[in-house]
Structures are given as C-alpha cells and as structure tokens.
Simulated assay, not measured.
Amino acid sequence: MKKKELIERLVSEIESGKVKTLGIYGHGASGKSTFAQELYQILDAEKVNLLETDPYITSGRHLVVPKETPDQKVTACLPVAHELASLQRDILALQAGMDILTIEEPWKASEILSGAKPILIVEGMSVGFLPKELFDKIICFYTDEETELKRRLARDTTVRNGDASIILASQQMRREQYLQYYKETESRADILVDQSDDKFQIKTNII
C-alpha cells in the first residue's frame, strides 16, 4: 500500500465514523508530522482537530538523567520527558465536547481547538506512551538513522532555529535512547510505516 492509498483509506474510515480519534506517532524526524498534515489538509477543517503533542514534552527534562546512561540527558524517547497526564486530560476534554487552548511553542502560537469538532488527530512522540484505548487507530512511523539525521538537520535548523553542530553531536545519543526506550512502543501500533531512504513501506497492517 502506497502513502496515497493509506491516506485514502484513512479518509474513508474517518468520514464514515469508523475512526474518530487517530493517533500518529514515531521517533523524531520519522515523517509523522508531514503525514499528519497531509491527512489533515484533505479532511474537512470544520470537523477535524489536529492536536500536536510536542508542547507536552517538558522543558525540565534536563534535570534528570537516564539511569542506564547517567552521562546523557533525557530525550523525548523516555516517558519521563512527557506531560502525559496533561495530554490525556486534553484529549479526553476534546472527546467530551469541550474546547482546549493549546500550549504555545517558539515556532507556533497557541490556539483554541473546538470540542464541537467530532474528529481528532493526535500527532507526536507522546502518543506512543498513551493508553491505546484513547484511540480508534494508531499509526507509528519509523526511519533509519541516516534519513532521520538528514531530516532533523533540515527541520531543526530552519523551522526551530537549531544549531547544526549540536544536532550532529547529539544524534548518536538520540538514536541510542530510541533503541532502548522508544522502539518497543512500535509494537502497539495498528500500522507501522517505515520511511527509511525516503521510501514509504507499511511493515504492519492490521487495518
């Protein structure tokens, strides 16, 4: 199944009411945000909320270190880096028909998401640590280390004003923590998409 076919399948399931809350997650620079945006742009904006979870990654994660690797800082691959209770509260609020105010980020202002919209797409790494029962379907994205680094450099230096030297220096640490803490979340997904070498391959298909 190609990307276009998967998007068409999801649009059909969403418009028919089979999927009302969709989770899209994966490690950094795996392609999840791009896919979520492509899907969101096709759907009726009057009926769909897109909740991005990056703002729920706590800025206080530098205060703790991974037990197995005390010389490393905590990346978003560890559950402790995420404000999961707050995120789950906001998802449940939207599902219950209540509005929420999203958290402001340096690259994106806060906005009101309307609880009157019946469809919710939740996108970001935090989804991998949330109870699966919150979602009607979850999709996980993965990519190889070389593709991840290429995308991270392109995104973080332009969109997020990141320093390329810092991104390069931290890449091995990020990948190690992904393999140790985050990769196991991939088994929870209904669909696993591998975008290594900028290809689009579905590895797990339970739709």
Rank of each mutant, 00 (worst) to 15 (best):
D198T: 03
G31C: 10
D54L: 07
K20L: 08
E145S: 11
A189Y: 07
E145C: 02
I103E: 10
L6I: 04
A164Y: 13
P70C: 11
C140Q: 01
L63I: 15
L168M: 08
T157R: 09
Q72E: 14
T158N: 06
Q41E: 13
N161W: 01
D144P: 02
V11K: 12
E15P: 09
R160V: 07
T21V: 15
R175I: 09
T157M: 06
I14S: 06
I139M: 13
M125E: 13
I166S: 05
V80N: 04
R155D: 02
E13V: 00
L94V: 13
D144V: 00
V193C: 05
L87H: 01
L153H: 02
S165W: 04
E146Q: 13
I112Y: 15
Q180S: 03
K32V: 06
L78S: 06
R89C: 05
K150P: 02
R160A: 09
I42C: 03
E146M: 11
V74D: 00
L43E: 03
K67C: 07
P66V: 03
A85W: 10
I103Q: 04
F129Q: 00
L149A: 00
E145T: 01
L6R: 07
E38V: 04
Y56K: 07
I57G: 05
K117F: 13
D198W: 10
I7C: 01
D44R: 12
E104Q: 12
H62A: 14
R89E: 05
E146Y: 07
D44A: 07
I14N: 06
T58E: 09
R9W: 03
D144H: 00
V64E: 05
D54V: 08
T34P: 01
V127I: 02
E184Y: 05
P66E: 09
F200E: 02
L22P: 10
E38T: 00
M173S: 14
S16M: 11
W107E: 06
L120S: 07
I119A: 06
S12Y: 07
V48G: 14
P118T: 08
R151C: 05
L10G: 09
G23Q: 10
G97L: 09
L22Y: 14
T185G: 03
F141Q: 00
L192D: 08
A85F: 10
K32P: 01
S86I: 08
Q95N: 08
E123H: 13
I202A: 04
R188P: 01
K32F: 05
Q177N: 11
E15V: 08
L22K: 11
S196E: 09
I14V: 14
I138E: 02
V64Y: 13
G60D: 11
H27C: 08
Q37A: 08
L78K: 01
A29I: 00
Y25L: 06
E46K: 15
I103F: 11
